[in-house]
Design a protein around this nucleic acid. Structure first.
Lengths: 212, 212
DNA sequence: ACCTGAACACCGTTCAAGT
DNA sequence: ACCTGAACACCGTTCAAGT
């Protein structure tokens, strides 16, 4: 309140940290009201700025959404990384907990989940975003690490961990997608399906597919 | 050319079968140019009618797209049903061929696939569409039938076929989705991943998950 | 019955003008 | 530097008016 900076910050003209506010509010709108509810008019009205102020910080609405996606990946990683790194739990236990946490994230943040793992804002990422796609892969690399541990302990068969991870991720992602998009009319059977899926995966991964 | 009806059909005012033309052209546009390319202005311009002519046959653009989805399900069923019904092939063979055909459909018609199995035009189906959702499930019921055959032959363990089908479908759907949405950077390894997935699924389905 | 053309309310984006 | 407000080019939808 004493420095000129603080006065400047509380002025209505200079918004302070408009870029961060845009990202946070946009993520909240997407998450709670759906992707269609995110219009620049509504977003800027809530923040008390004009529409075109957005273009001081992002070249386009798409670029803003890519920033939201980045924030989304961080949130998911924040949930998954501690589980992966919890060396007190067994591999099988962490495998189960990571799957559950991933599914829970999709169920509680369906719009955000579709944004992260859909196609709409994926192709353009390489062109528009200034960050590397490390974040996109951290979750997958954690899974690969877990599968390597499982291989070492003899819980699953030795095989290309990238291929194993792709298969496992596809299974969970497919389950999450079908669920949140309303194609599995068995939300009440969800626990049964999840437990069954995990057991089929673990059982299937035990054997090396040799023939043909 | 002789009857009044045929003359009427060739007239430019009465379009003949505008509803069917709308659906066919819309599906083609979606399939070849993406969902965003489908605007009523472009669609009606190609068919030589006014924009509002659409509203004589569909209450909204959304309803038109639901019709396109219906046509899409028919096309997929046309590909899968013959494989399922080919009793000359073994169960394992049909399981493999159905998976491949399903994946091929997704890869060759990504936008249409997302339309069929995404969320955007799914929630509203029950309210807007006049047809039953049989078509949506025929593919799933075919899979359930195949799994029941496999159970009878002792190829896989006895279990709730609905749960088994959900798990298998989720795996293939997840693979298809990650692929066409660009999240698996291994399109060249696709054959390896698919073969591995199928073997993990079949191996995993062999054992009954008893414990826990 | 079926279609037209103008109008409406939205959207993202641009840009000269303000401070 | 940062923001404003008006304007632009799109979109789906509506409706009085034509045949």
């Amino acid at each position: 309140m004493n420095t000129p900076e603080s006065i400047k910050k509380t002025s209505s003209y200079h918004h302070g940290n408009l870029k961060e506010s845009l990202l946070t509010t946009a993520l909240e709108m997407v998450d709670k009201e759906g992707i269609d509810a995110l219009t620049l008019r509504e977003l800027t009205m809530r923040l008390g700025t004009s529409r075109s102020a957005v273009y001081r910080h992002f070249p386009s609405k798409e670029a803003l959404i890519l920033g939201v996606i980045e924030k989304g990946y961080e949130r998911l990683d924040l949930l998954l990384t501690p589980i992966f790194q919890d060396k007190h739990s067994s591999v099988a236990e962490r495998f189960d907990r990571m799957g559950r946490e991933y599914l829970d994230f999709a169920i509680h943040h369906p719009t955000l989940y579709r944004l992260l793992f859909g196609d709409k804002y994926h192709r353009e990422r390489e062109e528009l975003c200034d960050y590397k796609d490390e974040n996109q892969a951290t979750g997958l690399y954690a899974l690969i690490g877990l599968l390597l541990e499982a291989q070492e302990q003899g819980i699953i068969a030795q095989a290309n961990p990238m291929v194993q991870a792709a298969m496992v991720w596809a299974s969970i992602h497919g389950l999450a997608s079908l669920l949140i998009d309303g194609h599995l009319l068995m939300r009440e059977n969800m626990e049964e399906i999840y437990v069954y899926s995990q057991s089929v995966l673990l059982n299937g991964l035990k054997r090396i597919p040799k023939d043909e």
